[in-house]
Simulated scan of single mutants.
Amino acid sequence: MTAQPSPPELIGQSRAFLDALDHASRIAAVDRPVLVMGERGSGKELLAARIHFLSGRWGGPLVKVNCAAMNETLLESELFGHEAGAFTGATKRHLGRFERAEGGTLFLDEIASASLRVQEKLLRVIEYGEYERIGGEQTRIADVRVIAAANTDLRIKAEDGEFRADLLDRLAFDVVAAPPLRKRQDDIMLLAAHFASAVATELNLSFPGFSAEAAMALKNHSWPGNVRELKNAAERAVFHWAELDGKGLIDEVVLDPFEAAFGPFGASASPKPEAPALSPPVSGARYDLRAHLNEVEKTLVSEALAAHGGNQKQAAEALSLTYDQMRGLVRKHDLT
Rank of each mutant, 00 (worst) to 15 (best):
S115M: 10
E202Y: 14
L190V: 14
A212F: 06
E213L: 09
A196G: 14
T152H: 08
P208E: 14
E120N: 09
N220P: 06
M189A: 13
F207S: 03
L171N: 07
A214T: 07
A217I: 07
A165F: 02
G209P: 02
F173I: 04
A150Y: 04
S211L: 09
R184D: 04
A193W: 03
R124C: 04
G209A: 09
R140W: 07
Q185T: 14
K121W: 13
Y128N: 12
E127K: 05
H194I: 02
A158C: 00
V146F: 11
A192K: 03
D166Y: 04
A193V: 13
A150K: 02
A114T: 11
D174C: 06
D153V: 15
R164L: 07
I147N: 12
L154N: 11
F207Q: 05
I134V: 15
L171V: 00
E159M: 07
A200H: 10
E120K: 04
L191F: 05
G136I: 10
G135I: 15
F163K: 12
I147W: 11
R145V: 00
T152V: 15
A177I: 11
E202S: 14
E132N: 13
S206G: 12
G209Y: 05
A158M: 02
G209C: 09
L123H: 12
P179Y: 01
S211Q: 08
R145P: 04
I147H: 10
A217T: 13
G135P: 08
E137P: 00
L191R: 04
S115T: 12
E137K: 12
T139K: 08
G135N: 08
E127S: 07
L122E: 14
A198V: 05
T152K: 09
D153K: 04
A198K: 02
I188K: 08
F173Y: 04
L154Q: 11
T201H: 15
P180G: 11
H194K: 04
F173E: 00
D153Q: 04
A172Q: 11
D186Q: 08
E159P: 01
I188T: 10
Q119A: 06
A192R: 05
A150V: 00
I134C: 11
G129F: 08
R182F: 11
H221C: 03
G209I: 11
T139F: 00
Q138C: 08
A149N: 03
E213C: 11
D160P: 00
I126C: 00
L167R: 04
V118F: 02
V144Q: 08
L171P: 06
E127D: 06
A178S: 13
R155H: 09
E159Y: 07
